[in-house]
Simulated scan of single mutants.
Amino acid sequence: MSTRLTSTIIDNAKESVQAYINTVAAINSDLDVVLSQLRLSYVGDASDGYMEFYKTRIQPAVTENLIGTGASLTANILSMLDNIKQQLLDTVDPQLGDYNRNPDSGDT
């Protein structure tokens, strides 16, 4: 069974990606609070080393690479969805629709 791609499908996909971004950001914020509280209880080289690892490896992976607004995975997915909507649905589909309605009125 085939499904026809519509603007609604693209908009729903974008809303789902945004909900994912919001959820990951909230979980990340909660994790920051937990780690800050743990840091108050544990001091020393191991604690310092873990916090450095967390700040230099884990945080960038979540913020910059996963949910950031620049070149992150989710930013690229949102961009891809925008491009699909613009190129296929807003440009190609209406042009083909017009041609299919009036095939003798223009060039192929």
Rank of each mutant, 00 (worst) to 15 (best):
A26C: 02
V24H: 04
L66G: 00
A25G: 05
P60E: 10
D82S: 07
L38M: 14
M80L: 09
V62E: 07
I67R: 06
I58G: 01
S2C: 06
V62L: 05
V24Y: 01
Q87L: 04
S7P: 02
N83V: 00
R4W: 02
V17S: 01
L38A: 14
V62C: 06
N28R: 10
V34R: 13
D11R: 07
N83F: 10
G44M: 07
Q18E: 12
R57Y: 09
N65F: 08
L73D: 07
L88V: 11
T63W: 04
T56H: 11
V33Q: 14
I67E: 09
D90K: 04
G68E: 03
Y99I: 01
T74E: 04
P94W: 06
L31K: 05
K14E: 03
S105I: 03
M1S: 12
G49M: 15
L5M: 04
I9V: 15
S47T: 07
L5P: 00
S2T: 06
G106A: 06
I21W: 04
L38W: 11
K55V: 08
D90T: 00
P103N: 06
R39I: 02
S29W: 05
D32L: 08
S72I: 00
L35T: 08
T91I: 12
L88A: 14
D82Y: 05
A61Q: 13
V62H: 03
T3P: 00
A13K: 03
I67M: 09
M80Y: 13
I27R: 15
L40Q: 12
I84P: 02
T63R: 14
N100V: 01
Q86R: 09
A13Q: 12
K85N: 15
D48M: 07
M1D: 11
I10T: 01
S7W: 02
D32I: 04
Q95M: 12
K55M: 11
D11K: 08
N102S: 11
T3G: 07
D11N: 10
S16C: 09
P60D: 11
G106Q: 14
V24M: 04
L66W: 01
L96G: 08
N12Q: 09
D104T: 14
V17I: 14
I58R: 01
Q86I: 05
L73N: 05
N76A: 03
A61K: 15
S105T: 10
I21V: 12
D32H: 10
D107K: 06
T6W: 01
D45N: 13
D104K: 07
Q86G: 06
M51A: 06
D93Q: 14
I27L: 15
Y54T: 02
Y50C: 02
T8K: 09
Q86E: 15
T91R: 12
N76C: 04
Q59V: 10
Q87G: 06
G44Y: 03
N100C: 02
S79T: 12
L78D: 07
S41G: 14
E64G: 01
Q59N: 10
N65M: 07
D93K: 11
